[in-house]
Write a protein that binds this DNA or RNA. Structure first.
Length: 652
DNA sequence: CCGCGGAGTGTTTTT
DNA sequence: CACTCCGCGG
């Protein structure tokens, strides 16, 4: 048996061994936070606490997965520990108790579905053609979502973040109300509803709250600075009876303010649990000192000061972090690809290297370069596999099979049929829901009048849905039937259908891992698969594959060698953040998160020639890097690919 | 009432 | 550039 005490420093051991009572852990980057949670779980189990009574919650799927799999590797009993994202936890509780809050069942809307539902509300209310400059459906969705996540009114959200739409405040509020009504009528839950309804369940049904709370005797929440007030309330409601709750966070790494996260939750926690023990983890086990010097210098430049200074506890080898300048994004991509290969050859394999960026599009030149050279990579974050139109088309068919009254999915698949547009689809859906005899929806559809041109396709759709509704048919078989129907549509609708077909092949593989269609659909919305950089191949994580990731998705992870792309104004900080101090601060913290991912080698890069459209402008180096103390800790390199005649690389 | 083509717009991070 | 939205022809 391992003696944790020898593997942990006194502060870490203190956290691991304090099992009862509330604990607030302030953990700096690389301070062994994940390890502490892992060992605390193991310690609880060895103290004969029931694994099923332990609950681990986080905000991101990735962190949740990491946390659970680590503990399992050490002790199989940890498999029975409960955990996941707040959203998936809410789903499992609500699914079990839906009737108690007045729902027989519910269907989860993803972002796209929610936007479509909102667009339908806008139309119903007749605001569609009211005027120009009316917020579009994705903006409306963001406003409504922000209001829920930040517990603000629509007007407050508009005032704070969308002053240009203040003139429409009455209409936006009306849309929000209509959207809420629509969701209740149809039994739809969007992401926020999962949290809101869990909170309602825990607030308004005291016996049930006690029953649920009693199941989870030890609660731990990771990345607490990224929780919003709803999530903090849920944590409180679950934990208040026994107060055996540990939350871990780092206010310097708070990067989800845009979706309502409040690092103030850290302060509120101490108020709600007054007896709480506050413990700090400050020693950094990840990075060598020269990397930490850069991170500390970046931290010191922030308006809002943090008291932490990271001190390296180890003596890792490494070299001085570098800032490399290029002319174009393509030069940048080529140089980095060279470096990656060079490190790989010298003993830092691809899976110990990562390229990080603010926004996915920044990585496109590099992706092209890597493809060209045959360097395998995975992309985390950004446009998701499951959000692409062809995947959604296919999944919508499956949704209709499971729930023929899923209006949004039904509308989507009807409109794939030639000469069926919004009107005809709307009429068909109305006839299904208005059917007095409550016949099977497929039977109603098959008999409903449709334009002559669509009759044949309509018949084959009905036949298909009927056929694959057979519970005895395996999921892969269903998929294959569906593909026979969908392939002509795919070819007609997309120029790049060959590439998309290989995505669907990947979907087939995923489906093969499930027995029940509704399990697959719930996972697909709440814990969707990531897209692999190499089409049609999924990577397990242990393989020698390079990681490309948004900084957001890289949180909590570490690599020997880290490259951060696009350190230019407009990308980092991103241009939309420029008019708000709090947003710029968040961008600043984002850079801090990125820097602290590196263990041994760190490269920052920038290119000064604007590759976008529009008037030719020159990029300026990011204000976060362009500061004396930060530059002093970086070795600057000007790439050889640069033209000798450019005298003023950066504008301004 | 569908669907095409052109104009216009805004561009991010996650569940 | 890529996507959405609008207006017009079929």
């Amino acid at each position: 048996m391992v003696d944790y005490r020898t593997e942990l420093n006194p502060a870490q051991w203190d956290v691991v061994s304090t099992l009862d009572g509330p604990i607030l852990v302030i953990a700096g980057a690389g301070s062994g936070k994940t390890r502490v949670i892992e060992y605390r779980v193991l310690h609880l189990i060895r103290q004969h606490k029931e694994p099923g009574s332990i609950l681990l919650l986080t905000f991101t799927r990735r962190a949740a997965r990491e946390m659970l799999s680590r503990a399992c590797r050490r002790d199989v009993r940890a498999k029975n520990v409960n955990g996941g994202t707040f959203h998936s936890f809410a789903y499992s509780i609500l699914k079990k108790h839906a009737p108690r809050i007045g729902f027989d069942s519910f269907v989860i809307l993803d972002e796209d579905d929610a936007q479509d539902a909102i667009a339908a509300c806008v139309k119903r209310l007749g605001f569609a053609d009211s005027h120009k400059r009316f917020p579009k459906k994705d903006t409306l969705r963001k406003i409504i979502s922000a209001a829920v996540n930040k517990e603000m009114t629509i007007d407050e959200v508009l005032e704070a973040d969308y002053p240009q739409f203040l003139e429409w405040s009455a209409q936006v509020s009306a849309i929000a109300t209509e959207y809420a009504r629509f969701k209740i009528e149809k039994g739809y839950f969007d992401y926020e509803d999962l949290l809101v309804n869990l909170k309602i369940l825990l607030t308004k049904h005291e016996p049930l709250r006690r029953e649920i709370a009693a199941q989870y005797h030890y609660i731990m929440v990771d990345e607490y600075q990224d929780t919003n007030t709803l999530q903090a309330d849920i944590t409180y409601l679950l934990a208040k009876d026994h107060a055996n709750v540990m939350v871990v966070g780092d206010d310097a790494q708070s990067i989800y303010g845009f979706r309502g996260a409040s690092h103030r939750n850290i302060m509120t926690f101490a108020d709600r649990f007054p007896r709480c023990k506050i413990l700090k983890l400050e020693a950094n086990y990840r990075s060598h000192q020269q990397i930490l010097d850069v991170a500390n210098a970046v931290l010191a430049d922030m308006k809002h000061k943090f008291s932490k200074q990271l001190v390296s506890a180890g003596s890792r080898s490494g070299d001085k972090p570098k800032l490399v300048h290029f002319r174009t994004g393509f030069d940048e991509a080529a140089w980095i690809a060279d470096k990656i290969v060079e490190f790989d050859d010298r003993g830092t394999p691809l899976n110990h290297q990562a390229v990080l960026f603010r926004s996915s599009y920044v990585s496109i030149p590099l992706q092209v370069e890597l493809q060209k050279r045959g360097i395998p990579f995975v992309v985390w974050g950004g446009m998701k596999f499951y959000e692409t139109a062809h995947v959604k088309d296919l999944v919508s068919h499956l949704k209709v099979v499971v729930n023929p009254r899923d209006e949004i999915a039904l509308r989507r698949i009807l409109m794939l049929i030639d000469s069926i547009g919004t009107k005809t689809a709307g009429r068909l859906i109305d006839s299904v829901s208005a059917d007095k005899d409550r016949r099977a929806p497929m039977a109603v559809l098959a008999q409903a009048p449709v334009p002559a041109k669509s009759a044949r396709q309509m018949q084959s759709l009905c036949a298909l849905l009927e056929k694959i509704a057979d519970p005895a048919m395996g999921l892969v078989k269903k998929f294959d039937c569906l593909m026979r129907y969908y392939t002509p549509i795919l070819k007609d609708k997309f120029d790049d259908h060959a590439e998309r077909a290989s995505d669907l092949e990947a979907l087939r593989e995923i489906l093969a891992g499930y027995r029940q269609l509704d399990d697959f659909l719930a996972d697909f919305t709440l814990e969707p698969p990531e897209r692999s950089g190499v089409p049609g191949r999924a990577f397990s994580g242990e393989e020698r594959v390079l990681t490309l990731s948004t900084i957001h998705s890289a949180k909590g992870l570490e690599w020997d060698c880290v490259y951060i792309l696009g350190l230019i104004e407009g990308v980092m900080p991103v241009s939309f953040s420029l008019n708000k101090d709090s947003s710029i601060e968040e961008e600043h913290r984002l850079l801090y998160v990125a820097l602290t991912r590196a263990k041994k080698h760190l490269f920052l890069s920038a290119h000064y020639e604007n590759s976008g459209f529009g008037p030719q402008q020159f990029n300026r180096i990011s204000r976060f890097v362009d500061s004396g103390p930060v530059l002093a800790r970086l070795e600057q390199i000007v790439s050889e690919a640069e033209d000798a005649d450019s005298e003023r690389p950066y504008d301004g």
